[in-house]
């Protein structure tokens, strides 16, 4: 299936930050049935990330503050090459930076390793502002997206944060700047405290929520984005089974990304894409694209 300029093997994509720091890990997820794989977000300089604990399973999902650990584009071109040689799943390079120049530098430097697509992680800390994220400012998202789209010859997807008042204004900004798809959502800001010691559990004190707890948030964001956008929406957040994937697609997603659910099952992609096929057959649809946004017509 062709979605937003790339040929997916099926609608289940490995989300960024999950099994994404080495080419071998990405290839393993590709072999396990992912329709495409997204790398860990890569930046302009090597980063160690935050101190541990950096990811903890809670009652309702997971909370993480990895702190974008990555070896920078210098170390990562080789990993993309390895991933591409060991799986035929398309490879989407997730990148981040503090401003348009940094994003563009990273994209250009990764181009030689021939990623099939870029995903801009505009949810990282804002180097030019004060603690907010780049992705909360539509003008900045527009500037960054324009700059990367101009610099590369492959599709550019933009991944949004749900931690904004109006996600559609950010989605529109990215679309008008030339994004081929909008990916939603990144993690939902959150915190967990150990009641016995009083310490916040994450090394970074607070972080982002993922897993089942965020699915309704993601479904609503995808639904709203589908309303206002012409480009495809890729749904991500809390998908653990094919029913979740279908729900996300009915809300407006052309394909889905799966992250935290890899914790329980590394074969999740194959299972979910089989489940999607069975559903499509049962209800008489010929392809996954046919159900994207269907719930909008149910009035």
């Amino acid at each position: 299936m062709k979605v937003a300029g790339i040929e997916l093997k099926n609608p289940t994509i490995l989300a960024s930050g999950i099994m994404g720091t080495t080419g071998a890990a990405l290839a393993r997820m590709g072999r396990n049935g992912a329709g495409a794989v997204v790398t860990k977000s890569i930046g302009p300089v090597p980063k160690k990330g935050h101190n541990n604990p950096s990811m903890v399973e809670l009652e309702c999902g997971y909370i993480n503050a990895m702190g974008l650990p990555n070896p920078s584009y210098l170390g990562f071109c080789e990993e993309i090459g390895i991933a591409k040689s060991k799986t035929d799943a398309p490879l989407i390079a997730s990148i981040f930076g503090g401003n348009a120049a940094e994003f563009t530098e990273v994209a250009k430097r990764l181009l030689s390793s021939k990623p099939d697509c870029f995903e801009l992680n505009v949810s990282c800390p804002h180097a030019e502002g004060y603690g907010a994220s780049v992705g909360t400012d539509p003008d900045l998202v527009h500037e960054i997206t324009t700059s990367v789209v101009d610099a590369v010859d492959v599709p550019v997807w933009v991944k949004l944060t749900p931690n904004v008042t109006d996600i559609t204004s950010i989605g529109r900004a990215a679309e008008s700047a030339g994004a081929s798809a909008i990916v939603a959502i990144n993690t939902v800001r959150g915190m967990a405290i150990d009641i016995h010691s009083g310490y916040p559990i994450l090394g970074n004190r607070f972080g982002g929520l993922s897993g089942p707890a965020v699915k309704p948030v993601a479904v609503k964001c995808v639904y709203d984005l589908y309303e206002v956008l012409d480009v495809p929406v890729i749904g991500v957040g809390g998908i653990t089974c094919w029913e979740d994937a279908i729900e996300m697609m009915l809300a407006g997603a052309s394909a889905v990304e799966i992250g935290s659910a890899v914790h329980d099952d590394t074969q999740i992609f194959e299972k979910i894409s089989k489940g999607i096929d069975t559903y499509l057959q049962k209800y008489g649809y010929s392809k996954a694209e046919d159900i994207a946004g269907l719930s909008h017509e149910m009035i």
Partner: peptide, 12 residues
């Protein structure tokens, strides 16, 4: 080990 629970891939 970053996550320690098999998700992030740091230890792969």
């Amino acid at each position: 080990f970053k996550c320690g629970i098999g998700v992030c891939g740091a230890c792969s």
